[in-house]
């Protein structure tokens, strides 16, 4: 009897996968998911380099003059600089599938998570104050239909 039921079940016509599925699955580049993290890491590295350059630039004002020169040119002590404001932004985009607007227009939904870090750095003392501001955006992009 179970065999008969299995036969009946096998005869049932199944809903076919949409034609777009092949394109969506097979054309995904390997490593695509890691790209966002790689981009984020690169951006973070760039910001760190930027901060380092800014700090070293501030340090030049206080660099020791060449021997002998300082004695002849008694320049006034440079004014202490105020805190430097730096901003770092990290973001990550996550795909959350397709939405149907009014059940007709297909839209791809992306969620962008953003972390803004604002740093105030006292170049003279090296004291750093940090404020982190998390944010989130939803981006909808019209999807191609075939």
């Amino acid at each position: 009897m179970s065999d008969e039921i299995e036969k009946l079940l096998r005869k049932m016509p199944l809903r076919r996968p949409p034609k777009t599925l092949d394109r969506r699955v097979l054309r995904q580049p390997a490593g695509a998911a890691r790209l966002w993290w790689a981009a984020g890491a690169l951006a973070a590295a760039a910001v760190v380099v930027g901060v380092a350059i800014a700090l070293s630039g501030g340090g030049k004002q206080h660099s020791h003059p060449e021997p002998g020169v300082a004695e002849r040119t008694a320049q006034p002590e440079p004014q202490p600089a105020g805190p430097v404001r730096m901003e770092q932004t990290y973001s990550r985009m996550q795909y959350e599938g397709v939405l149907l607007l009014d059940d007709r227009t297909p839209l791809r939904k992306f969620r962008r998570r953003i972390l803004r870090r604002v740093l105030w750095i006292d170049v003279r003392t090296g004291y750093t104050d940090v404020m982190s501001i998390p944010d989130e955006q939803v981006v909808l992009i019209a999807a191609e239909t075939y």
Binding site: L14, R15, R16, P17, P18, T20, L21, R24, V25, Q28, P29, A30, G31, A32, A33, R34, Y95, G97, V98, L100, P106
Partner: peptide, 28 residues
């Protein structure tokens, strides 16, 4: 794969997304 995803989600668009996301995860 699509039928399984459809049986779980009950929606064709979610089933399609599920198959795509699963393979995106598997590739990586």
């Amino acid at each position: 794969l699509f039928t399984l995803a459809l049986a779980v989600t009950g929606r064709a668009d979610l089933a399609e997304d599920a198959v795509q996301e699963a393979f995106l995860h598997l590739w990586n």
